[in-house]
Simulated assay, not measured.
Amino acid sequence: MYLRKTNCAVQSALESQAAVVLLGPRQVGKTTLAMRIAELQPSVYLDLERDSDRQVLTEPDLYLDEQTGKLVILDEVQQMPGLFKSLRGQIDMRRRKGLRTGQFLLLGSASNVLLQQSAESLAGRVRYIEMPPLMLDEVGDDQINRLWLRGGFPDSFQAETEKSSMDWREDFLRTYLERDIPALGPRIPATTLRRFWTMLAHAQGGLLNAAALAEGLGVSGQTIGRYLDLLVDLMLVRRLQPWHENVGKRLVRSPKIFVKDSGLVHTLLGLGTTEALLGHPVVGGSWEGFCIEALIDAAPSGTQPFFYRTSAGAELDLVLRLPGHETWAIEIKRTTTPKVTRGFHLAAEDIAAERRLLVYAGGHEIPMTQGIRAIPLASATDLLRNLS
């Protein structure tokens, strides 16, 4: 069992806010974390996917009045959007009684839906925290290849064998496609959405080409946009936006698309072993996406991630605009002999980057010229976490 960094973030937030919304895909560990917090104080837990628990909240104010003084944990809270108005009233009533913090912990696995619902009713009363899958500093540097291959969902990472890990991820995908996504409302054939998801995995880290995806699936570009919005909302896909601040440069304007968990990429492509992965064309894109998720997670709250590419060939895999507007230029290479291209230097000059990093697959820092640091992923994430 690994100690999740999100645990400390949630406990800290509950000490200063009346309500905390914990976001993350299913099976990432939100409920386990909530139960650990519940052990530390008087608490009540309801899973709003269960009919019996929803029945308890038929008259929400009557029930919640009885729970005053306890931490109320509501799992899959987006299942009852009408509840947020009652939560606002409860928070305000408790404030008048002097109870200002640690009242509600809300768990959800559909970010945009939940953000819209809660923002309308709980503005100024809630803090949002996103829980990612397991990250490198939670499992240890020596586990990097296992984490890359299996991904960070705890049950997948901790499985006894590569086959059992792969089987878990197959079940995870099937459950999302056949149960979880239909429960949100969209009527999309599971086979169609699986094909779409697999097409994204094949193009891991590539520019969004909606026309090609539409042609491959036999649907409209508008439908592709709807499918993509759904997977982004479920926190399963990242849409990395292009840097857009250089006037006079011809910049690429399409986003880059990543399946966020590397283990899901490999399952969608049938890659169950390290040997199979290293021999597959997706290996570079998979490593890039794996590193990008780790770097974004390690960056201080409020950091904005982008990529940079011009029509002339200047390119950066990741640009981080940190709070305070310091800008980092990052190149990612699946190699043990790191080198950067002239395009990296040009791009770093274009955005006036204060720091220039080459994240590579080796185990120690390698001296480079022109202010570039070539460092392992673990060292790069340490640099970012030390800024927080």
Results as ranks from 00 to 15, higher is better:
D317M: 06
A353F: 09
D51A: 13
I375S: 04
R125P: 05
M135Q: 15
L48D: 01
H345L: 13
V283Y: 05
G270R: 07
I372M: 10
E138F: 09
A159Q: 11
S286L: 03
P154W: 05
G324M: 04
V359E: 09
E170P: 02
S118Q: 06
L74D: 00
E245F: 14
D141Y: 07
K5P: 14
T198W: 03
V139F: 09
A201V: 07
T336K: 14
S388A: 13
L358T: 09
T58L: 10
G140F: 10
V10H: 10
L99A: 11
G206T: 03
T335G: 08
F84Y: 12
D92Y: 06
E275K: 14
L22H: 10
Q158W: 08
A13Q: 11
G24T: 07
R239M: 01
Y227I: 02
R385G: 04
Q204G: 08
F157N: 09
Q67N: 04
Y128P: 02
F307T: 01
G24F: 05
R226T: 13
L71N: 07
H364D: 14
R169N: 12
E76K: 09
V113Q: 14
K256V: 00
L64I: 10
D261N: 13
D142N: 15
E275D: 13
F344G: 09
D75R: 01
M80T: 14
R187P: 02
I351G: 11
G218D: 08
Y176M: 11
P154V: 08
A190D: 04
L173G: 11
E178M: 11
G248I: 05
T161K: 10
R356S: 03
L207D: 05
G371P: 08
E162A: 15
W328N: 10
R238S: 06
D382R: 15
G102W: 05
G285A: 09
L377C: 12
I351L: 14
E275C: 00
T267P: 04
R253E: 01
S111P: 01
R100M: 11
R127E: 07
D171Y: 03
I366R: 13
P242C: 00
Q79G: 00
S111N: 12
D233A: 13
L14M: 07
T198D: 03
L357C: 12
E138T: 12
E293N: 10
R169H: 06
W287D: 00
L193T: 11
G89D: 00
L147D: 06
R94V: 00
L383P: 00
D261Q: 11
Q67T: 07
